[in-house]
């Protein structure tokens, strides 16, 4: 990309190229979020034997854009008792963090914005910042239900980040690199030299399951959406928000869901590699494969949302601390032991 702007001085060319790269990722992502909200509602409706959105545009395809326009034209209401500055910063943090994490996701052998050697750590760092959007909105609203929701969200995200950390460690142990593109390349022909996925490896499959469930908890999706449990705490931390500040939460949340789907695909199911290591499958560009995998995972997320009832809060904490944490810890031992025996020698 930089070479296209070689008529400019290097620093300027780098800046221009990076800004264009960011837009090339962020704008389609926003479009994808709009369509994925529509898909979520359609899938959810189909599983409940309803029609779902079907009025705006053909098959209701333009529903999300109509909603976006409506929200954009609404008045932003700031409660008089709210802490004004933090109240407005909170949704911005959620939205920014959801976009920033996409910088290290590889869409192809060269198609990655920041191919840094601490890619996974960057993702952990960014996702650990996501909790501030929720905590701050809950506190700054100066209202009791948002505050409960903020406390729940903080405890939930911190708990599941521990299990996610161990899952990531086991993938990193197997790959020997924190760079996401190296992780994808290490999966090439991983099973019998033909299947491109860590997920079918019996030692890594349990980790893939733990990661899938933890990623639902980390993004506060059903069945772990205790932070916005409408039967107990209204809409949780979003209760006092309206218009664009509400929309930013919404976009950020679905952006995070897509990110988690992309991470599931990248870490365990081959990322942008085709499912089988056959030469003709590589004619299809990598972005198509990763997009297909993201959509499959998003379908699983919607499916779970439509069919599984919400957890109780103590069950959620128990699952995180008493089941996933010991399980993933034991699996890290197993995997490092196996690698020590087979790859590195005792």
């Amino acid at each position: 990309m930089i070479s296209w702007f070689s008529f400019l001085p290097y620093g300027l060319a780098y800046t221009v190229a990076t800004v264009i790269d960011i837009l090339v990722i962020a704008l389609p992502l926003m479009l994808a979020v709009a369509m994925i909200i529509y898909a979520d509602r359609k899938i959810w409706a189909a599983m409940a034997l309803r029609r779902g959105p079907n009025v705006v545009g053909p098959f209701g395809l333009l529903q999300s854009f109509a909603d976006g326009l409506k929200v954009f034209l609404q008045e932003t209401i700031i409660p008089s008792a709210a802490n004004r500055g933090l109240f407005l910063i909170a949704p911005i943090i959620t939205f920014t963090v959801a976009l920033a994490a996409w910088a290290v996701i590889p869409f192809g052998p060269k198609a990655v914005l920041a191919n840094i050697n601490v890619g996974l750590l960057y993702l952990l760092a960014i996702s650990s910042m996501g909790v501030y959007g929720v905590i701050l909105s809950g506190w700054a609203s100066n209202s009791k239900y948002p505050f409960y929701s903020a406390i729940r969200a903080a405890a939930q995200m911190v708990s599941y980040e521990v299990a996610i950390g161990f899952v990531l460690i086991s993938v990193v142990l197997w790959t020997g690199s924190f760079r996401l593109n190296d992780i994808v390349m290490a999966q090439r022909g991983h099973i019998f030299g033909i299947i491109n996925a860590f997920g079918f490896n019996p030692l890594l499959f349990p980790m893939a399951v733990v990661f899938l469930i933890s990623s639902m908890a980390e993004t506060a999706r059903a069945p772990f959406d205790l932070t916005e449990a409408e039967s107990e705490i209204v809409a949780g931390y979003q209760t006092e928000y309206s218009s664009m500040s509400f929309a930013l939460f919404w976009l950020g949340e679905y952006g995070n869901v897509l990110l988690m789907c992309a991470l599931n695909a990248t870490l365990f199911w081959g990322g942008w590699l085709p499912p089988l290591d056959l030469p003709f499958l590589y004619w299809v560009p990598g972005i198509v494969w990763i997009f297909a995998k993201i959509l499959i995972f998003f379908f699983i997320f919607s499916w779970v949302k439509a069919t599984v009832p919400r957890y109780r809060y103590d069950q959620l904490m128990r699952l995180g601390w008493k089941i996933f944490l010991p399980l993933s810890l034991i699996w890290v031992f197993l995997i490092s032991g196996w690698l020590m025996l087979t790859r590195y020698g005792v």
Partner: peptide
């Protein structure tokens, strides 16, 4: 020191400061 930078964010911003914020709130 990109490793230290990421650790600083993960440990201090992601965990320690959340705890502070909790207590202070």
């Amino acid at each position: 020191a990109e490793f230290i930078a990421m650790l600083l964010v993960i440990v201090y911003v992601g965990a320690v400061a959340v705890l502070f914020l909790f207590v202070v709130m």
